[in-house]
């Protein structure tokens, strides 16, 4: 049986028909062609699929698409506003917080949740906040710097 769903994705109301078993990440990637949200594992471990569901960082591989009916979803594609990069996106570029780029969308979405709840995180707090996101390229060193860079800019201090 298919379910009709309506999800506000990046400010736009999107309709779709999904099987009950369909995961939100699949809905985003296959139905909505929002392929910035990635799939890196099948055990809800790696965080590459992290999006915001009603404002909270969520692994979109561990939510059914039908559960997102009526919800607000933000993906990496919705982070820049009017062509201007989100400070986290800018931070990742400035501090070389990405190499292959595959984990990056999830990292940015998780970091956005962190900074929303803790605008001035310590290095230790940043590292703890990233425990659900695996990066195989950077050794996390510059990801930490990128988030610090963004935190400074978001607090009105020039990094």
């Amino acid at each position: 049986m298919k379910h009709k769903i309506s999800v506000n994705i990046n400010g736009k109301q999107c309709e779709g028909e999904v099987e009950g078993r369909e995961l939100l990440v699949n809905f985003l990637r296959e139905h909505q062609s929002l392929t910035g949200t990635h799939i890196g594992c099948d055990t809800s471990s790696c965080g590459a699929c992290t999006i915001h569901l009603n404002g909270a960082a969520t692994k979109s591989c561990t939510v059914l698409a039908v559960q997102a009916d009526g919800a607000e979803v933000t993906t990496i594609e919705g982070m820049a506003t009017n062509g201007e990069l989100h400070p986290l996106q800018a931070g990742f570029k400035e501090e070389h917080g990405l190499q292959c780029g595959f984990c990056t969308p999830g990292m940015i979405m998780t970091a956005a949740d962190l900074l929303k709840n803790n605008p001035n995180p310590s290095e230790h707090e940043i590292r703890e906040a990233l425990e659900g996101n695996i990066c195989r390229c950077t050794g996390y060193h510059n990801i930490v710097r990128s988030i610090q860079h963004a935190a400074k800019n978001m607090n009105g201090v020039t990094a």
């Binding site: 692994k59 962190l114 425990e131 659900g132 996101n133």
Partner: peptide, 9 residues
């Protein structure tokens, strides 16, 4: 428990 994302859900 888990991580930020897991704790949110």
């Amino acid at each position: 428990i888990g991580d930020i994302q897991v704790r949110n859900m």
